[in-house]
Design a protein around this nucleic acid. Sequence first.
DNA 1: AAGTGTGAAAAGTTTCACAGCG
DNA 2: CGCTGTGAAACTTTTCACACTT
Lengths: 238, 238
Amino acid sequence: MGRDCSFIALPSYCSIRKNFKLHTILEEESEKNERVDIPKKAVYRLSIYHRCLQKLSVNCQETVSSEILAKAAGVKPAQLRKDLGYFGQFGTRGLGYPVEGLISTIREALGREQLQPVILVGAGNLGSALLRYKGFLKEGFEVIAAFDARPKDARARELKIPVHHSSELKPFITANGVKIAILCVPVGSAQEVVNLLITCGIQGILNFSPIILDVPVEVTVNNVDLALELEHLGYFIQ
Amino acid sequence: MGRDCSFIALPSYCSIRKNFKLHTILEEESEKNERVDIPKKAVYRLSIYHRCLQKLSVNCQETVSSEILAKAAGVKPAQLRKDLGYFGQFGTRGLGYPVEGLISTIREALGREQLQPVILVGAGNLGSALLRYKGFLKEGFEVIAAFDARPKDARARELKIPVHHSSELKPFITANGVKIAILCVPVGSAQEVVNLLITCGIQGILNFSPIILDVPVEVTVNNVDLALELEHLGYFIQ
DNA sequence: AAGTGTGAAAAGTTTCACAGCG
DNA sequence: CGCTGTGAAACTTTTCACACTT
């Protein structure tokens, strides 16, 4: 499978509502819905499993073993079983996991039952490319609008999604209950734009600017730094 | 700083030549250049430190403390010191690290003294956006050519970089000694293209296709899955 | 006094190995 | 018999705390 060149991660646990099963050892808080610690990376892999399952579903597979699914997802079978185990028991011993059942279970665990509205800020080269990218919609997200400091330049790119001026951010976010923003503005204005987004009520930011954003703890930032990925790759080819 | 939402990582050590200092406990192999285990993620962060240092350099800072640099990089001071410690001793107690000195040290440690040639395969929406992206060059990489199954369509996008037909991959890679490829082809043809790239001698792949590529161990793959990043973000905003 | 360098402890994650169920 | 579910062990990474140097 080649060397895995993933990532920076300040490891930490994330709390999640667990509906399925009580942990044996948990004494306190024995309600039906208690919060259990689940490794962050396990949550991440859940998305991968979800995607792999969808492919199997198209191929009309009814069940899948941890061995097969793990191979498709690029992990070891034991890890897949452990990851799923954090959320409950879904498999049948001797048989495997029901494909459709597992898809909807993961979807529920990830809290993505309905389409999430997303906005994109900064419709330059990269931003406008992302607006044309169809992969987001398939995974339950819809980019409903874009914003730019110079919307006219952006509109010249012939996009199907409306490009507004940045000054319209606040009313738009409030009116549409948007919680997630994709950030593609230049480094120089990134922090400033983020501050604005947060006052507007944005809770999650997918950041493409190569800069560490300073945000309050309740806001989640996910960095995608393209140059860094390439640089890291460069290191491993000696 | 907000919750860090990084990543999938099969953790493992990577070996690196350490020129600066002998580990106290290492008995065998007491040559000047022995290989020491360095956490993968530490190598990753080295790139981040490098970028942060460049900013300080522009501001004419002579030295920087682990506290300041760590804050800029989004890590804890102790971690920064430990990371640098894997490569040797560069700081002055009571003073901090020399900015210029650390920049060149990291550059050397990352093995990036000269410009790396890179090719891009699949000049669709995302691919052509990346071709216009200037961030790569700044970090020591130059995209010298692009390839596409239908190069005429791609050329219509008015790119400054030549777009060749995929059939020219092998001679081009061989002639130019290219080791790194950026992959932006559709999921369906990704594995097939990768197989071809590997026979051409490519050693590192920055993969934008949402699929786990199957490659031999000596080839490094770095996945950037945009939809996945968004999905993961969605999970954390409850 | 300020700030690095680093063992040791703590925290987090993966892998093993096998019990147990269908 | 095959395959899941899961404690326990192994492993990796981060954080702490303080000795030590300038």
